[in-house]
Amino acid sequence: MSERKVLVVDDEIHIVHVVAIKLRNNGFEVISAENGAEAFERACEEKPDIIVTDFQMPVMTGLELVEKLRRNEATKNIPVIMLTARGFAIEDEQKKALQISEFLSKPFSPKELLRSIEDILYHEKIKNQNAEVEVTH
């Protein structure tokens, strides 16, 4: 089985670093970006299995990034986990419309983040397998 690829996006270099160590220690390949614009380019090039992004970033925010990802054919189905240090989260409808799998508020636990990533990827895998079975039949 090929290494699962995670794109970590945050303008806080320490956060990217700690998440990357945690994920690499657990068998993930990690690529990173400092802002939404850079993340979109990397997502298009590298086609990660999942994206972990901060909410508030310079140049392009996390929300703008997700909106852009969903409009693009190649990236529209990539699951997204959003980290936020804001005092409020976005509305449920918006979360649903943008297909944001999960919101984790800062400070977060790297363990919890890892668990969420694995859960989401597992569900994605099941979903894809079901889709394949339907196609074969």
């Binding site: 806080e12 320490h14 956060i15 700690v18 508030q56 240090a85 804001r86 508020s105 800062k106 400070p107």
Partner: peptide, 21 residues
């Protein structure tokens, strides 16, 4: 409040994550 919350939580997030690691 939103801004301060973000600014306070960002270093706190690093502290929490690195301590846990």
């Amino acid at each position: 409040v939103n801004h301060v919350s973000h600014e306070l939580k960002t270093p706190l997030a690093s502290i929490t994550a690195y301590s846990e690691m």
